[in-house]
């Protein structure tokens, strides 16, 4: 019944999974980088270990690293798992990387059913495939939508069912600082 600090949480997990790495974001928020191969086992441990007892997955989301000024640059999609223990009242952030070339991660929906909806959303908006998900279909956008809009290289579609978009084919962000490296905005085409 006691909250563990991040270092101890990390130590407990790394004792079993040495491939898990401790990381810190630029503004000193600690998190664990979990390799995709270990993800399911680590999540299972997090939920079932009585000292960790992360019964709730408070959030599962992701973002695209394509334009993030990280060192080294990456084109992967981060998927972040925010765990919380209601009994011990401690938190943990896990992250897994899904590179664009093979954008697949194992689904944790068997461990936390809350992930069913969250993973569908990440799939819909960021295009990460979750293997083992019971029904991985688009959740917010229509089934026949093209592209995954929260990716940083998404351009406005030209039209949807005959209704043209006001900004068809434009990039989302303007300005030279944010223009994608080596790519010109597509001429009226979908992403």
């Amino acid at each position: 019944m006691s909250a563990l600090p991040f270092s101890e949480l990390a130590a407990r997990i790394r004792a079993r999974f040495p491939a898990v790495a401790e990381r810190m974001s630029e503004n000193r928020q600690p998190w664990l980088l979990v390799p995709a191969a270990d993800l399911l086992a680590v999540c299972q441990l997090c939920r079932d270990d009585p000292e960790l007892d992360f019964a709730s997955l408070c959030d599962l989301t992701g973002w695209d690293l394509l334009r993030y000024p990280a060192q080294p640059p990456s084109d992967a999609i981060v998927v972040a798992y925010y765990l919380h223990s209601l009994r011990h009242r401690h938190h943990l952030t896990l992250k897994a990387l899904a590179p664009r070339a093979c954008c697949t991660l194992p689904s944790v929906s068997a461990i936390w059913p809350a992930a069913i909806a969250f993973e569908r959303e990440v799939y819909d908006l960021l295009g990460v495939q979750f293997s083992g998900h019971p029904r991985l279909t688009r959740i917010l956008l229509p089934e026949d939508w093209e592209g995954h809009p929260l990716r940083k290289d998404y351009a406005y579609p030209a039209a949807y069912h005959g209704v043209p978009h006001a900004r068809a084919g434009q990039w989302f962000e303007d300005g030279p600082a944010r223009a994608p490296a080596g790519a010109a905005p597509p001429a009226g085409g979908a992403a």
Binding site: S25, E26, N27, R28, Q29, D59, P69, Y82, T93
Partner: peptide, 9 residues
Amino acid sequence: PPRGEVRVR
């Protein structure tokens, strides 16, 4: 603003 990330509930 500083670079990095936060999660607040």
